[in-house]
Computed example of a mutant assay.
Amino acid sequence: MDPRFAHIRDWIFDLDNCLYPASTGLFALIDQRMGAYIQRLLDCDPTEARRVQKAHFHAHGTTLAGLMAEHKIDPHHFLDDVHAIPLDRVAPDQRLARGLGRLPGRKFVFTNGDAPYARRVLEAIGVGDQFDDLHDIHASELKPKPDPHGYALLCERFGIEPNSAVLVEDMAQNLKPAKALGMTTVWVDNGSERGNHGADAAFIDMTIADVGEWLEAILEEQI
């Protein structure tokens, strides 16, 4: 094991554009459904829906957070709708599965999505049995990353000691609250929309491009 990670007991991973490559375009399907949802909600054209969607994303961190704050939508209805996508763009990742299987300690998914969708994606990429549990937007009391509230709830719920934990995440700004708690932070820089927004070496311990490749490297053997 790479000595920089020898002290880690809890491995925490984001889901979308992190455990699978951003280049698959899976999140683009969700993005499209968000736009269609806003068109119906506001009875507007696609151009206006796109403007509203991205304005909420930039101002609130997620489109959902903005729609809840400004339009009082039902988050369950929204999440069920936008996550109703086919998963044929992602495929089983055997290297990722082997790497996760060799990690010492516990493994968690920490996502701004919801649990049913997250479990579907984990099964699609062949790693559903590699995680001890997952912490979704509902477990974060609908306060998405990078709101510190969800991080605190995650640690409380699973008894995570931040100084012995690592967060692996494709959105750089989402690493800042983790670092403030004392976690080791790994940024997956692989082309996510606004993935580099707010990136700062002060709260990023390591930058990688692929999680499976990184696990192979830190375990110091071909797995």
Rank of each mutant, 00 (worst) to 15 (best):
His56Ile: 14
Phe57Cys: 09
His60Ala: 15
Thr62Gln: 08
Leu64Lys: 12
Ala65Phe: 14
Ala65Pro: 06
Gly66Ala: 12
Leu67Ile: 09
Leu67Gly: 07
Ala69Ser: 11
His71Asp: 09
Lys72Gln: 14
Lys72Trp: 04
Asp74Cys: 13
Asp74Pro: 14
Pro75Ala: 01
Pro75Val: 02
Pro75Gly: 02
His77Pro: 06
His77Val: 14
His77Asp: 15
Asp81His: 13
Ala84Trp: 05
Ile85Tyr: 04
Arg89Val: 00
Ala91Trp: 00
Asp93Cys: 08
Gln94Thr: 00
Arg95Ala: 13
Arg98Lys: 13
Arg98Met: 14
Arg98Asp: 14
Gly99Pro: 08
Arg102Phe: 05
Arg102Met: 12
Arg102Tyr: 04
Leu103Ile: 07
Val109His: 02
Val109Ile: 13
Val109Leu: 05
Phe110Asn: 05
Thr111Glu: 01
Asn112Val: 04
Asn112Ile: 04
Asn112Ala: 03
Asn112His: 00
Asp114Glu: 10
Asp114Ser: 10
Ala115Arg: 03
Tyr117Gln: 03
Ala118His: 01
Arg119Ser: 03
Arg119Pro: 00
Arg120Cys: 01
Val121Asp: 05
Ala124Gly: 10
Val127Gly: 14
Gly128His: 10
Gly128Asp: 12
Gly128Glu: 12
Gln130Trp: 01
Asp132Ile: 07
Asp133Ser: 13
Asp133Thr: 00
Ile137Asn: 04
His138Ile: 09
His138Ala: 12
Ser140Leu: 13
Ser140Tyr: 01
Ser140Asp: 05
Glu141Met: 12
Pro146Tyr: 00
Pro146Cys: 09
Pro146Asp: 10
Pro146Gly: 06
Asp147Trp: 00
Asp147Phe: 00
Tyr151Gln: 15
Tyr151Met: 15
Ala152Gln: 06
Leu153Thr: 01
Leu153Ile: 08
Cys155His: 06
Glu156Ser: 05
Arg157Asp: 09
Gly159Leu: 03
Gly159Arg: 02
Ile160Val: 05
Glu161Ala: 15
Glu161Gln: 11
Ser164Leu: 14
Ala165Trp: 11
Val168Pro: 03
Gln173Glu: 13
Leu175Phe: 15
Lys179Ile: 00
Lys179Asn: 11
Ala180Asp: 11
Ala180His: 04
Ala180Lys: 10
Met183Thr: 06
Met183Cys: 02
Thr185Phe: 07
Val186Gly: 02
Trp187Phe: 03
Trp187Leu: 05
Val188Glu: 06
Asp189His: 04
Gly191Met: 03
Gly191Glu: 07
Gly191Ala: 06
Ser192Asp: 06
Glu193Tyr: 11
Arg194Tyr: 07
Gly195Thr: 03
Gly195Phe: 02
Gly198Pro: 08
